[in-house]
């Protein structure tokens, strides 16, 4: 092989590694609110909606805001640039995907985990 080809391949591998590593990182890993605030990068935070606190949807800005408590009990205001997701009240668990900003959390996506209507153990027990 010519030296040009070898150098080219090595350089290409380096850039390809940079591309794939960072392309994967864009999604962001799972962490709690404090860690997300420390890094400032994209993050997934798992938690529950705090129903006792107020929540509201601002139609002019198209922002839905609510309080969420993560798995270690830290409570933060979450802003979501969309209307309230369907089934939000039924959710037993939320996963917000976004980044921390100015003491609050800006969610780009919300995954709503609802209890499955096909695995209702109580219904199963009563029917037995």
């Amino acid at each position: 092989m010519k030296p040009k080809t070898i150098i080219g391949l090595v350089v290409m591998l380096g850039f390809a590694a940079l591309l794939f590593l960072n392309f994967g990182e864009q999604v962001g890993g799972y962490m709690d609110f404090a860690q997300a605030e420390a890094t400032g990068a994209k993050a997934h935070v798992v938690g529950q909606w705090v129903k006792a606190e107020h929540f509201r949807y601002d139609p002019a800005q198209n922002v839905f805001s609510f309080y969420m408590e993560d798995e270690v009990g830290q409570r933060r205001l979450v802003h979501y640039d969309n209307p309230k997701p369907p089934n939000f009240e039924d959710a037993e668990q939320l996963v917000v995907e976004g980044y921390a900003k100015e003491g609050a959390f800006v969610a780009e996506h919300i995954l709503v985990k609802c209890p499955s209507k096909y695995n209702d153990t109580r219904a199963l027990e009563t029917s037995l």
């Binding site: 040009k4 080809t5 080219g8 391949l9 350089v11 290409m12 380096g14 850039f15 390809a16 590694a17 940079l18 591309l19 794939f20 590593l21 960072n22 392309f23 990182e25 864009q26 890094t39 400032g40 990068a41 994209k42 980044y99 900003k101 800006v106």
Partner: peptide
């Protein structure tokens, strides 16, 4: 998200440009 939040994206862009241009040169 600002600079901190866009870091991964910017590095991805550098990597993409690098891969495409080196491949093209070869």
């Amino acid at each position: 998200a600002g600079w901190a939040g866009a870091q991964d994206e910017l590095l991805t862009l550098v990597g993409f440009a690098g891969v495409v241009i080196t491949a093209s040169v070869l």
